[in-house]
Amino acid sequence: MTVPNLVGAGLIVIGAGIGLGKIGGSAMEGIARQPEATGKIQTAMIIIAALLEGLAFGALFLGK
């Protein structure tokens, strides 16, 4: 791997990390406010996280 590739991979991981953090944080807040909706919130959280992850992996894969 060359240096630009590594920098790009780092940028992707930073972006994905921010995204995952926001998703996880919001889900936690939601669960704290409405514990009875935990199941639904978790499902939605995993779907969004998976979509985000797909995007990040796609970018990593294309940059390889």
């Binding site: 979509l51 992850e53 797909g54 992996f57």
Partner: peptide
């Protein structure tokens, strides 16, 4: 389909 296949492969 691309996101489906890359996610599983990469993970």
């Amino acid at each position: 389909p691309f996101s489906l296949l890359v996610r599983l492969f990469a993970n």
